[in-house]
């Protein structure tokens, strides 16, 4: 499909092309993580993993919003959010394998997102790759 690209524009929109697919997936995860953490915290607000779910939810929401908003600031915040997400999923994933007891109740990130088809593990890499391709300083 030959279509006019917007790559010559000063700031390539973050939410076009493959970015749109990314926004869709991030949006789903934002909803999923928010719902999950709301239910879990409603059940028992005293457990660490539940707060991690909420943190994940906030990060997914932030990344989704920034991708939609776009621009230089949007790009920066999205990059920060996706980086935290990557660190989070790796840390929580490893931690949950080492100490299964603490993560008896599943969270979005435990066991590298096993309950979500390992997508939470793949997503930050896809996000970083996309952000790299749309870096504002790049003038193709």
């Amino acid at each position: 499909m030959a279509e006019p690209t917007t790559s010559s524009a000063p700031d390539r929109p973050l939410a076009e092309g493959w970015g749109r697919a990314l926004v869709f997936v991030y949006g789903i995860f934002a909803v999923a993580a928010t719902g999950r953490s709301a239910v879990q915290l409603g059940d028992d607000a005293g457990k660490v993993p539940y707060w991690l779910s909420l943190l994940a939810a906030v990060i997914y929401l932030g990344a989704t919003t920034c991708l939609l908003v776009g621009g230089r600031t949007g790009w920066r915040v999205a990059a920060a959010a996706v980086s935290v997400e990557l660190v989070g999923v790796l840390a929580v994933g490893t931690w949950s394998y080492l100490d299964d007891g603490l993560f008896h109740d599943k969270t979005v990130w435990s066991h590298f997102g096993q309950g979500y088809g390992f997508l939470p593990l793949v997503l930050p890499f896809a996000g970083l790759a996309w952000l790299r391709a749309t870096r504002p300083s790049r003038r193709p």
């Binding site: 499909m1 279509e3 076009e16 092309g17 493959w18 749109r20 697919a21 869709f24 997936v25």
Partner: peptide, 15 residues
């Protein structure tokens, strides 16, 4: 529908 290309097909598949 907003992305009439391979990407649109992918999004529908993801959905």
């Amino acid at each position: 529908l907003a992305e009439r290309s391979r990407v649109g097909t992918t999004i529908l598949l993801l959905a």
